[in-house]
Simulated scan of single mutants.
Amino acid sequence: MLKKYSVIFALLSTSFMAHAVSTSELERIVTAQGQLLTEYQQQITDLEQEVDVLRGQLQETTYKLDQTIERQKSILQQMAADSTTNAASSSANQTNNQATESSTTTGLSDWKPTGNDKNDYNYIVSFILQGKEKKNAIVALQQFVKTYPKSVYQANANYWLGQVNYGLAQKNDASYYFAYVIKNYPQSAKASESMYKLGLILLEQGEKVKAKTIFQQVIAQYPKDAAIVNQAKQQLANLQ
């Protein structure tokens, strides 16, 4: 009988020890999981804060672009009063005569739209590419965008307005035209470069945070434009 009780006692002791070990292991696992959960929650909180910061920077940049566009609208409105050519009402003879006159013009100072947007665009840009008559080129391009509001060269014309103004250190005007291209022609071939140039202007004005946001947008929105993306990445690397 004593031997029987001894066996039972031994079995109960073994069961108790196994239970104790199992409980201790469970507590350790629960504690470890609790620590992991706390770390994950902290990481999520940090990421949410970073997203909020980027969102705020993007909203501020967008607001500044809209302000710039509104401030500079008077330029185009003024051109409406100065424009003396109505391409839509010009007769075929007048268009041909004006085209002939344009081809013999020696400069942009007395240039007027001919009714042919492609010829007029190429004519104006030819002076820009040669680095000639920059101020006259600005006036001519402004006449162009007013005369041909539906032209396929609208995005390019506004881009060149940004470029020429930038070359003349008129950075506020340059910002307006680059922003105009970004907002109104986001799918054009000049949109990515316009956004990049806008980032450069912000950087030159000491707005490093806003410039960084713009360069990040270039990479995100125009990943297929390898040349511009590489330049944006280089600028971001310099800002680190």
Rank of each mutant, 00 (worst) to 15 (best):
K208H: 09
Y123I: 03
Q235S: 06
S83M: 15
T104H: 12
S188A: 14
K4P: 04
Q67M: 11
T105I: 06
Q163T: 14
Y5I: 12
V181F: 03
Y185H: 12
A18C: 12
Y40K: 15
L37Y: 00
T85K: 01
V164H: 03
D110N: 14
T104A: 14
A226Q: 15
E204F: 11
L12W: 01
K118D: 08
E101I: 02
V145P: 04
A32G: 03
T100S: 13
L239R: 00
A81Q: 07
D110Q: 15
S103M: 08
A189H: 01
A211L: 10
V139W: 03
T100Q: 13
A189T: 01
F215Y: 02
G56T: 10
V181M: 02
S24E: 00
V53F: 07
G34F: 06
N238A: 15
Q78L: 15
M17I: 12
E48R: 14
Y180L: 04
K4N: 09
Q240R: 15
G167V: 04
D173N: 02
F144L: 03
L129D: 13
N172L: 09
V7Y: 04
Q216N: 11
G206W: 08
Q77R: 06
Q221E: 05
S24C: 03
M195A: 09
I29E: 10
Q170S: 08
A88H: 10
N122Q: 12
Q42D: 11
Y185M: 06
V152F: 00
Q231K: 15
Y176K: 04
T14G: 06
T104P: 04
Q170C: 01
V209A: 15
Q94E: 12
L200N: 07
K64E: 15
V229N: 02
S91K: 08
Q59F: 02
S194E: 08
S22I: 02
Q72A: 08
Q217A: 07
M195F: 07
A92V: 14
Y166E: 14
A32S: 10
W111E: 01
P149K: 09
S194D: 07
V30H: 13
M195V: 09
L203T: 02
N156P: 02
Q234F: 13
F215D: 01
M195T: 09
T147R: 06
E207C: 07
S103C: 07
S194A: 12
V209G: 13
P186C: 04
S91N: 08
N184L: 06
Q205E: 11
S89G: 02
L54M: 07
T45N: 13
T62D: 13
A232K: 02
R28G: 14
Y121D: 03
